[in-house]
Structures are given as C-alpha cells and as structure tokens.
Nucleic acid binder design. Structure first.
Lengths: 339, 339
DNA sequence: ATGAAAGCGCTAACAA
DNA sequence: TTGTTAGCGCTTTCAT
C-alpha cells in the first residue's frame, strides 16, 4: 500500500531488515513480547520507534480477524440522553483499545438494519443497539453472523440479546408514584412517538399498570423540545387543568415547562411537572425539575466493558439491570384540591 | 479468517468457484461491473446474493489502501452544538459511503493528538478537527502523514489546514452589535475556559475590538450549564447590575437565564441576555433567547462533502466561510437607563 | 529463541 | 471479456 502522497509506509519487512531479524520476530515483539529475548526485543523496539513503524490495522485484521472497533446505533445525537450515553461508551471503549463508530437511525428500523449491516460489512466486531425491538432483517443478521450485540436503554432478562439498561416501566412508575404520593390524581401524561420506541411503550405500559386511583389523560407529542411546547398548548386547551403533568422524557418536560411558562402558568404552583431522564439542565432549571434519574453514563461504561469482554474473550454477558431512582426537586408540589 | 463461531466466512474464491469464473471476474463485478458481460455479471451476482457474500473490508483495505472511514475529534458530546454538528456530519458522510469514528478530546490537546494518532493507526482516511489550534505533535502528524484534515467551527483563510466554519470574532460582534443597537453599554460578558479553545479566544478578541463606547466586564465561567448558573451569582454579587449580559455560548446563556431567574431577576426587564449558537431550546425558552445562529448543520454537510472529495479525488478543498446571523428574540430589550 | 514459509481475502497487472 | 498470478502487510505454524 502506498500513502496518498506516494512514499510507502514502513512495514514489518523494513523493520525486520533494519533490525536484522526475521519478520516473525518483529511480529512477536509486537504481539507476544515475552517470547523474545530482552536483547532482541530492545533492538527491534528501537528500530520500530526510530522508523516510526505502525502496524497496518488492515493487514492485522485480515489475519487475526480483529478490527478493534464496534458500532453503536442510536436514534439520534440530538437528544442529550444519547449523547451522554455515547460519550461514556466511547470513553470506556477507548480505555479498552476499541474504537466506536456511531450511526444514527432516526428511530427507523429499516435505517437501523441497513446501517447495522453497513457496520458489519466494514468489520465491526460488536454492536450496541438501543432498545430490543428491531426489524426482522436485523435480528436475522445478528442471529446469522453471531456478532456480539448488546441492547441498551432497556432491561429484559428474557430477551435473546443481552440487555443492559433500566426497567422503563418501573422508571415511569417511580415518577407516577412520586406524583401520587404528593396527592395528585388527575395527571396528564406526555410522551413522544411510541410507534418505533419500545422504551416509550414500556413506560406507557408501566403507567397503565399503576392504578391506585390515578386518572391519566394522554398526550402524544412530536419529537424534541418543540413537541413539549406544543403539548403544553394542547393540555391547556383540552379541558380542565390536570393536577400534574408527567413527561416521559426530560426534553419533553423542558418543552412543557417553557410552554406553560409562556402561557403564564406557574410550575409548580398551578401544576406539578415531572420528567424522566435527569439531564444536566433539569437540576438548574427554574424551577428545578423533579425527574427520575436514568444512569446512562453507567450504562455506557457497563455496555462497553460487557461488549469488550464478549468480543475479546467470547464471554457473552448476562443482562444487567441498572437502577433508576427518583430525584425530587421543586417542580412538583403537594396537591391542593379545590381552591 | 474464521468467524467467532467457527464456520469460515464466504470469500471471493468460494464465489468464483460456485459461479465458475475466476476470482478476478468476481472482483470486477464488485468494483467495475461495466467491465463484465451482463450475462456473467448476473450469474456472479446471483451467487453472491445466494452465498450472502460480503467482501472483507480489511482485505480490500490492504490492497486498495481505502478503509472508507474518517475520524472526527470534538471536545465533547455533551454540548448540543457538537452533537448537532456530528449528526449532520455522520448523515452526509453516510450518503457518501463513509463511516464516521467519533473521538472526544475534553478540549485537551494532548488527548486530541493521542486520539488522532489512534484514528490514523486504525486507518482513518481523513480527520475532522475542531478549531485550528492543536498540539505540535498533532500538527506534525498531519504534516507528516498528509492525511486529509479539515478544521471546523472556525474560519481562517490563511490556516495551513482548510477550515470550514464561521468567523467567531464576527459572530461575537454581531451579538454585541445587537446589544449596542438596543442602547446597552455596560455589558457583562460570560465565557467558558478560553485556554484551549480558539473559538472562545476569537470571540473575546472580536468583542475587544468592537469599541463604540461599550464597557465590558468579563466573567469566566466553568464549562457547561452549571458554569452559567454560577456566573449569574458572580454577576449579581459583583457590583452594579450590567445593562446586558452576553454569553459566548447558548449553553452558558441558558445557565445564566436559570441562574438569574432563580434569584428573582427578570430577563429582559431587569437585564438583557444574549447567547451565541442558536440551539433548539433557545427558540422556546421563556423568554426566547436572542442569539447568533451558527450554521453547524450546514457545516457538517460541507465538511463531509469536502473531506469526501479530498479523500476520494485528492481535491484539497478551499476554506469556506459560513455566515452566522443574528436571531433577535425577546431576551433582549431596548435599554432604559436611570429608572 | 528465532527463522522460513504458508497463507489471510482481496486487487491489479498482465496474458490470453 | 476473462483468467492467471503476484503481491498487499501481517500472523502463525513448523522447523531449526
């Protein structure tokens, strides 16, 4: 291979020649230094440094079958929750000498399958997915290639794939439980598109199973901040004001907060507001947002170490449940009925 | 190479044998289909599909020198401005059959250099950097390997590297100009750590050059939202209230907004507030934030196409200046002096 | 402990 | 148009 400029890259043979050893020996000092005399090893290493030799990843991959990179498929980078997850994932992977190739799916299973195939085609040794619901093609692809794959943001001990994540239904129930404890019963629930999002579906399922005399009204918002803002309008124009609003994500809650404030509604005096995620801004908004903390950073770290271990030592990990917990701040207040 | 399971992957030879042609012919239908009879081509293609053959990226890379991926180095994923940029970049690269490997630098030049080297070692064909200030090692690395590299978020026609970005000094001046037009003179400027951030340095430089009777007081905030919140406290306790506050990023402005509101200060009645970036939330906050729109999505697209063209056709791109523009919303108000 | 040599899967001359 | 064959840079037996 020649560089784009023209002078060829230093290769094993060059090093071997310069160090007056065989290519095998050079290869050894690279891969199993213990199998080489210290004297030889030092000499070779010196030449390597001097010649600025970097083994070709491609050639190495072709022989060892290892490419040292994995792929992650997330719905979007435009939501801090995924960005935070990926940041932690990338950091933890890098510590294990693995690179991360990121692909976004726009929550579209067809795109997801296509990009996953693309990642595998270019040699990804493992895959990180979001959620456990995927297209038949993707499932077949994983089944067929047996590529180490971990589903995240979702916990399901019975899933074919190892899952590392939280119990979304429980997280939603924690939120609703908090509102319930404060005495709220008539609660508006705002969620994003549930169609292709099993995390959202699960949260909805969790709320429906909650019971305890709660009276839930449902609002589906479009994705992102603006969806929350619009939902505020829907809620305000859609009959009596609920006692509390539960958003199934912090981004939505932020939109709601702004939407309500824009209409002169005070949170939490006029209505309690809750989110799920615990993004950085939730701690500092005015009022600070009560929410359910989802341990996405830990999820990133655990997914990284589990996938690394699977890829390197064929240890298929067990699913891991990460605990979500309530973060009660001041956007929720005890319910005072009949003013 | 055998798969992690054990059955070996289908290779060119298998296909050739099954289709009863030579490996060269199979290679041709893959790479220059025009050079093969339609009849042969179809037959081979059929076998390829049937055997589910996927060419080995590593083997291809070793011969062609192409790996079809590039690396991007950003300070963090934890700021929407970079996440948005990367999202656009990834999308545009994918459209050109290039994958994106993301690495974060924490705004540390040593980490940046190290990760850049790692990316090159694994075969990155091109690099996207943030800003134009980098460690000597990284500059030497780029110089030496001649790897196509584009600096973003910064425009500098005289830079060694092609830059694709906006004029940070001008962007800051647009913001200050807006405040000036509204009659504000005593203005607090809040910026993040400038040490390793040439974008911030440039914005500061731009403001210093503005003149026109403005009286700037400077506040350095720590990174992120919390930095903005803290800065609000500093400003409030640090002497007379300024007429306006100019934040050198929207994240900081958001922190400021919350910090001020938390102290009972009304924006924009008590003080005008401005940001730079134009993140999604800026349009919907209460009040909506006046800011300077930085075209990061377009930057992602342009960087992708420029880098792709460079990598594929050795066309080194010219630097491109993307225009930032004022987005006046309601967080800024005409200055009323002496109440 | 070291070396020689046989591939890994593919591309690209060169021949036919 | 198609086939033969020589590598690409490395790892890995198998000898020595």
């Amino acid at each position: 291979m020649t560089d784009q400029n023209g002078k060829k890259r230093v290769n094993l043979r060059d090093v071997a020649k310069a160090a007056d050893v065989s290519v095998a020996t050079v290869s050894r000092v690279l891969n199993s230094p213990g199998a080489v005399t210290e004297k030889t090893r030092n000499r070779v290493q010196e030449v390597i440094d001097q010649l600025n030799f970097v083994p070709s990843a491609a050639a190495r991959a072709i022989n060892s079958g290892r490419t040292r990179f994995v792929g992650a498929l997330v719905p979007t980078l435009d939501n801090a929750i995924f960005a935070r997850f990926l940041a932690a994932l990338e950091r933890a992977l890098a510590a294990r000498q693995l690179s991360l190739v990121v692909a976004t799916t726009s929550s579209d299973q067809a795109i997801e399958a296509e990009k996953a195939k693309g990642l595998l085609d270019i040699g990804a040794e493992g895959l990180i997915l979001s959620g456990i619901t995927h297209s038949a093609e993707l499932e077949a692809l994983i089944e067929h290639t047996r590529v180490p794959t971990i589903a995240t943001s979702y916990f399901d001990g019975t899933c074919n794939l190892p899952t590392i994540g939280y119990d979304n239904a429980a997280a939603a129930q924690i939120a609703l439980g908090h509102l319930h404890d404060l005495g709220h019963r008539r609660i508006a629930v705002v969620h994003g598109p549930a169609q292709n999002n099993d995390r959202t579906q699960d949260r909805i399922r969790g709320l429906n199973a909650f019971g305890q005399g709660t009276e839930l009204s449902w609002f589906q918002a479009s994705i992102g901040l603006q969806g929350g803002v619009d939902a505020a309008r829907s809620i305000l124009s859609g009959g009596p004001m609920p006692e509390a609003i539960l958003c199934l994500s912090d981004v939505l809650a932020m939109g709601l907060l702004f939407g309500l404030q824009g209409q002169g509604i005070d949170v939490p005096e006029d209505v309690s507001l809750m989110g799920i995620d615990d993004l950085p801004w939730s701690a500092v908004s005015v009022p600070p947002l009560s929410t359910v903390h989802l341990p996405v950073q830990r999820m990133g770290e655990q997914a990284a170490s589990a996938l690394a271990d699977w890829v390197e030592h064929q240890n298929r990990p067990e699913s891991a449940l990460l605990h979500a917990h309530l973060v009660a701040r001041s956007s929720t207040l005890k319910c005072v009925r009949g003013e």
